[in-house]
């Protein structure tokens, strides 16, 4: 009994401990820059979680990160490190907008479903390229997915300024608008668009898939030891393709939501670095889809607090970058503590 308790307590203590340590470190940093750390934390809390508006501000920023984090977390089960979320978002958004424009008379529900599918397929195919190159050509997936980000952004910019440009989008080259009727609304009673729900649902589905199905079990085996998986007759190549595709689909969905819930068009704002932020979320959540949800909310909160920090303490925007850096360094460092902790306790008990 105490042992299982220890097991549950360990990650909790480590996370709380590392958050405390990083807050102390960041406090020292802020203090040395001449601001009062206690006031800064108070402001950050108010801006991120203090009021219901703050919560909405935080959650709206967290929503895309949940989806882009899956771009890195899912392939992580196979031992792959994919950092191509940005490309998946961009391709998803672009293709979602393009298909919506081909169906001007269809009812919104049909348009939105098609858009979601198109976005997911586009994002999925984009990350699948990285997975396929890895499996069939042994091209390192981290680097290829990074390069694919730049290529996707170039494609987006090229297409929205040429073939698919709405001539009316004068000073901000974009595709045509998908139509107000086709826009996704907000969750009743809030200011949040449905992206948050999609994000949470996607994380839960991903968690169920990876932890409670044969498919997930097979992936974990393949991730642990490719040779053992091959001996056991597991189709490693197919697993890689399917998982990369699912991961990219999550990113593509995030891109589709940017178009369908916010911009109504595809343009260069799709490249908003959600993909890169998602990588950190995935690493800090240790690739666990359920843990992604709170981590994304934490990061969303930090980002939401940037504005008020600037306005009330005249700190530069980079302050929150430093804070994110410190928190994530400490949390990644704390990875080494797992296991040591309970061993110490056991020794103490015996």
């Amino acid at each position: 009994m105490p042992q299982t308790l220890n097991k549950a307590l360990e990650p909790f203590l480590i996370i709380v401990g590392s958050l405390t340590v990083s807050m102390v470190l960041f406090g020292i940093f802020v203090a040395s820059a001449g601001a009062d750390p206690f006031e800064v934390y108070q402001t950050m809390y108010r801006a991120a979680f203090g009021t219901s508006f703050s919560w909405q501000n935080t959650l709206v920023r967290a929503a895309p990160l949940m989806l882009t984090a899956l771009c890195t977390a899912l392939p992580g089960y196979l031992g792959l490190i994919i950092i191509g979320g940005e490309g998946a978002v961009v391709m998803g958004g672009l293709f979602a907008a393009i298909v919506a424009l081909t169906m001007p008379t269809a009812p919104p529900i049909v348009v939105l479903t098609t858009m979601a599918l198109a976005g997911m397929i586009a994002g999925g195919v984009w990350l699948m390229i990285g997975g396929a190159l890895r499996h069939y050509r042994a091209v390192n997936e981290t680097i290829s997915s990074l390069l694919l980000n730049y290529i996707a952004i170039a494609l987006l910019n090229h297409l929205v300024t040429s073939t698919f440009r709405d001539p009316e989008s004068l000073n901000h080259p974009s595709t045509h608008h998908i139509g107000e009727a086709n826009m996704i609304g907000v969750i009743p009673g809030t200011d949040l668009h449905w992206g948050l729900v999609f994000g949470i649902v996607a994380c839960v589905i991903a968690w169920f898939l990876m932890h409670h199905t044969v498919f997930g079990f097979a992936s974990q085996i393949a991730g642990g030891n490719v040779r053992a998986a091959q001996v056991a007759g597991l189709p490693v190549g197919r697993l890689i393709l399917i998982i990369c595709c699912a991961a990219g689909a999550a990113g593509g969905l995030a891109g589709m939501l940017e178009v369908a819930a916010i911009h109504g068009r595809a343009n260069d704002t799709l490249n908003a670095n959600y993909g890169y932020a998602g990588i950190l979320v995935a690493f800090v959540a240790r690739n666990n889809p359920l843990a992604i949800i709170p981590v994304a909310v934490l990061l969303g909160g930090i980002r939401a607090s940037s504005g008020l920090l600037q306005r009330t303490h005249e700190l530069p925007d980079a302050t929150v970058l430093v804070m994110q850096g410190i928190i994530f360094l400490v949390i990644l460092f704390s990875e080494t503590l797992y296991g040591r902790f309970s061993r110490l306790q056991k020794q103490g008990a015996s």
């Binding site: 950190l280 690493f283 980079a318 302050t319 970058l321 430093v322 994110q324 994530f328 360094l329 460092f333």
Partner: peptide
């Protein structure tokens, strides 16, 4: 250099930390 710390992940965090510090 500590056990089980992923160097790629730390790299991305360092990227954030380094650029943030430089901008600040």
């Amino acid at each position: 250099s500590f056990q089980r710390v992923n160097d790629i992940a730390v790299g991305i965090a360092m990227m954030l930390f380094g650029t943030g510090l430089a901008f600040f």
